[in-house]
């Protein structure tokens, strides 16, 4: 009996904890959106920090990211083409490549890439700032941490994931064409028709929305996880661990919901 009560209590505590975390994330997002609408937010100083964030998150990693996209895309395209040929479905290879790579796999991998590189760094930095009282010092100096530290990271994350996923998609399309038709222009019309057929407005809007949500997840969750770190240095790794687990589940959840909306 005692075991049952303890289990129910433990489950209840966990569920309450999840609700509190969810509420904190939602409250932070609402605050950020309200600040975005505030004209005073858009000063030169905030804009400069946003540009720096986009540079650190997207531009700095561009060569490595493009190399990684090239290898992954080439592998997946080769697998799809070989399988399509084996089953006599070569005609569907282009569509399959675009649907699998450009719409699903590359945005997902881009989000994972940014989460591992920038999300973990953001989580650690915010946790350290909280533990070391740096946020209190900024508030004492009347420098708003939201405008100076958090909002630029959120905007930087969204812009970076959307643009990197877009760039990865374009590269995959080019690679896909070259793999199927080679350097000949013979298949250009058929290929562009397939692209036009797949990328209707709904799909395009859905893809951008999904990438924007990925971008939010890889920045918003690490920031809130960092902010809830107790003021103890040894809790920083725990904060990063929790934050990154939440980011992973959020990315998977966004992908699953997007797939369900598209195909079910």
């Amino acid at each position: 009996m005692n075991f049952l009560v303890a289990s129910i209590e433990s489950l209840g505590a966990k569920v309450t904890g999840w609700f509190i975390v969810g509420y904190d994330i939602f409250a932070f997002l609402t605050q950020s959106l309200l600040l975005l609408l505030d004209r005073s937010t858009w000063n030169r100083a905030t804009f400069d920090v946003v540009v720096k964030q986009v540079y650190f998150t997207a531009v700095q990693i561009l060569p490595v990211f493009l190399g990684y996209v090239l290898v992954i895309s080439w592998l997946i395209i080769t697998i799809i083409l070989t399988t399509a040929r084996d089953f006599g479905l070569t005609g569907f290879a282009s569509e399959m490549t675009i649907r699998v790579l450009v719409l699903e796999l590359l945005p997902f991998l881009t989000a994972l890439f940014i989460a591992l590189r920038s999300g973990s760094a953001i989580n650690t930095e915010v946790a350290l700032m909280r533990v070391n009282n740096e946020l209190d010092a900024l508030e004492h100096c009347k420098v708003p941490p939201m405008q100076f530290e958090f909002l630029p990271r959120l905007i930087g994350g969204v812009v970076s994931v959307v643009t990197l996923a877009g760039l990865a998609g374009l590269l995959a399309l080019l690679l896909s064409y070259l793999s199927i038709y080679g350097l000949s222009m013979a298949g250009f019309e058929a290929f562009t028709q397939i692209i036009a057929k797949i990328f209707n407005l709904n799909i395009l809007f859905g893809l951008i929305a999904k990438c924007a949500l990925f971008g939010l997840a890889v920045t918003l969750i690490p920031i809130t996880a960092g902010l809830e770190t107790p003021k103890k240095l040894f809790m920083v790794p725990v904060s990063v661990l929790r934050g990154m687990m939440r980011v992973f589940f959020a990315i998977v959840a966004i992908e699953v919901v997007s797939l369900a909306l598209k195909y079910i």
Binding site: N132, D136, A137
Partner: peptide, 11 residues
């Protein structure tokens, strides 16, 4: 206020 509890931004 200048105090140990109000440090600089480390980065």
């Amino acid at each position: 206020r200048v105090a140990l509890e109000l440090p600089l931004r480390a980065n």
